[in-house]
Computed example of a mutant assay.
Amino acid sequence: MLLTNKHTKQYAVFYAICFVVCSFWHFYLGRTLSSISPIFFLNRLDISLNILLLTNIQHYIIENKWLQICLDFVYFLLPILLAYSFIKNKNAHKFFAISTSLFSIVYLLLFSIFSIISIEVFIAWMFVPLVFYASNSKSFYFMMHILRLLFLLFFLSTAIWKISTGAFFNIEQMSAILQIQHPAYLAENPNTFYAKVLNFYIKNENISYLFYASATLLELSFLIGFFTKKYDKILIVFFCLFLTFDYFLMGINYTQWLPFMGCLYFSKYKLDES
């Protein structure tokens, strides 16, 4: 089967749906600049972030409520305009692809220092828009596969890091991670079912390690994607398993990585070289 413009537009629709659903969820939880009304920020060792902070934009945001609202509005609007312009074959889609990616990087870098949410969970909104810079199915094919390789690398590098640091060989690793990840919840809600589940895995290191080892092997399995696209649908299932267990055990929500799944799903279509 050949990759056609119909497939590229389907990916754009999928991207837009993912963004709208995730955005509504974040808005409902109050995870926007205007909702959290930041009064301080937390810096970290990040070159791009520190270059951005040299502009003092973080102080302007803290002091100006309307600026917070405007930044939220633009952040939520750009992906919709991008998807619409791409689906309707508007010439502006290239402009919106670059604008959406760059603005998302700036917005999410800033949001991550005003909140406790890691920048890591937002990377799909930074990279996926660039796929829609493509002007035809051929360029889309190559850009999509570059994005696919990046996604595979994200997962594989995590597994390699766990193995290289020795964490994979530490039976107590998962138990310790759960204690570090959920201290506030365990202290405030010790009698809930979820707290009892967490305490069970914390106390039973061998059982909790099985989850850690399984997750590492699952991440390592993404290596196969560098050699063949035959198992991409299985990798989608693996990702969904990872997403589910990471959310319920670690409380980390990776649903915003779902747009990457389009790369794995549409990878089955071949390039029309005629």
Score class of each variant (00 low, 15 high):
Glu219Arg: 03
Tyr209Gly: 04
Pro129Met: 10
Phe132Arg: 13
Ala176Asn: 05
Cys22Trp: 02
Val20Tyr: 07
Phe41Asp: 02
Trp66Phe: 12
Tyr84Trp: 04
Gln58Tyr: 13
Val20Asp: 14
Gly30Phe: 12
Ile224Val: 04
Met261Arg: 14
Phe260Leu: 11
Ser99Trp: 15
Asp232Ala: 09
Met143Asp: 07
Leu102Ile: 10
Asn206Ser: 14
Glu172Met: 13
Leu264Val: 01
Asn189Thr: 13
Ser214Lys: 12
Leu153Pro: 06
Ala83Cys: 01
Ser48Thr: 07
Phe140Val: 00
Leu108His: 11
Glu63Tyr: 04
Ile207Asn: 01
Leu52Ile: 09
Phe169His: 00
Tyr194Cys: 02
Lys65Ala: 04
Leu147Phe: 08
Glu120Arg: 12
Leu130Thr: 11
His59Phe: 14
Leu130Pro: 00
Lys229Phe: 15
Gly262Val: 01
Lys138Arg: 15
Asn253Ile: 03
Ser118Phe: 05
Pro190Arg: 00
Phe245Ile: 15
Phe111Gly: 05
Ile171Met: 14
Asn189Arg: 03
Pro38Ala: 10
Phe76Gly: 11
Leu82Lys: 04
Leu33Ser: 11
His59Ala: 07
Asn64Asp: 13
Ser115Cys: 03
Asn56Gln: 01
Leu42Asp: 15
Cys18Ile: 00
Phe211His: 07
Asn199Leu: 07
Cys70Phe: 15
Thr4Asp: 14
Lys9Met: 06
Ile36Trp: 12
Ile202Tyr: 03
Ile57Asp: 05
